[in-house]
């Protein structure tokens, strides 16, 4: 068991972390490069920057969704994201690992806060899952991965909470810790290749889609030519 833990913490962690970091960077660069190429070809090069920034901020802090539409679902989603992002990054135990491994560290969350955030993440992930399953509108739009993701994200949180706060036997601890590490690594590897890539694409998505809807300079002529109506007003 020790060897498994060692393997999961060492090579497997580095593999999955490398895939995640470079994968996300790759997705981001491809995204921006594509947008830049579209912009270069676009006929209309004026971009509504104010609108783009406003939309980006709205989607970054989607509090307005709370007021209209589906308040319960939106609140669950926001709180879920807060815990999901803060706990893994700012957990003291994780920072200690970075400190002992590479020698870098940053301020940590106080333990009670981290514990409560973990619990809230677990609760809201379940709420989101249930909401998706039982709302007809949501389940109509959902794919398999949309159901699986909240459950997969739950795994490291539940196992991490067990390891940090419950007194369990040594062997149970090791198994739980192994599940904790392996599930987190599975998430790392899948992250850049699934919808979770929005964690890095979100700040630019409004800009990219705005640029993507700019047609190349001579599109109107090309369309008219194709429709056999050359010279007709567009």
């Amino acid at each position: 068991m020790d060897a498994w833990l060692e393997f999961a913490r060492g090579p497997l962690f580095r593999l999955s972390f490398g895939v995640m970091m470079l994968g996300l960077l790759r997705i981001l660069l491809l995204d921006l490069y594509g947008a830049w190429e579209a912009y270069r070809r676009a006929g209309d090069k004026t971009l509504p920057w104010g609108y783009i920034i406003r939309r980006t901020l709205v989607w970054f802090f989607p509090f307005n969704k709370v007021l209209k539409g589906r308040p319960f679902y939106s609140i669950c989603s926001i709180l879920f994201h807060i815990g999901l992002i803060l706990v893994p990054v700012l957990l003291f135990a994780h920072i200690q690992l970075w400190q002992s491994g590479v020698g870098i560290s940053w301020p940590a969350l106080p333990k009670p806060v981290a514990d409560w955030l973990t619990i809230s993440t677990i609760v809201f992930a379940l709420a989101l899952f249930i909401g998706r399953s039982f709302s007809r509108m949501s389940s109509f739009l959902s794919r398999k991965q949309d159901y699986l993701w909240p459950l997969l994200l739950l795994l490291p949180f539940v196992t991490g909470y067990v390891c940090a706060n419950m007194s369990v036997g040594a062997s149970t601890y090791q198994v739980t810790m192994l599940i904790h590490i392996l599930s987190a690594e599975l998430i790392f590897v899948l992250l850049p290749f699934t919808k979770i890539a929005h964690c890095i694409l979100l700040p630019f998505s409004q800009f990219v889609s705005c640029v993507a809807w700019r047609f190349p300079a001579d599109t109107d002529d090309a369309v008219c030519t194709t429709l056999n109506k050359k010279g007709a007003p567009v």
Partner: peptide, 9 residues
Amino acid sequence: ALSFALGFA
């Protein structure tokens, strides 16, 4: 990206 991660591992 994949070979970088593999090398790192």
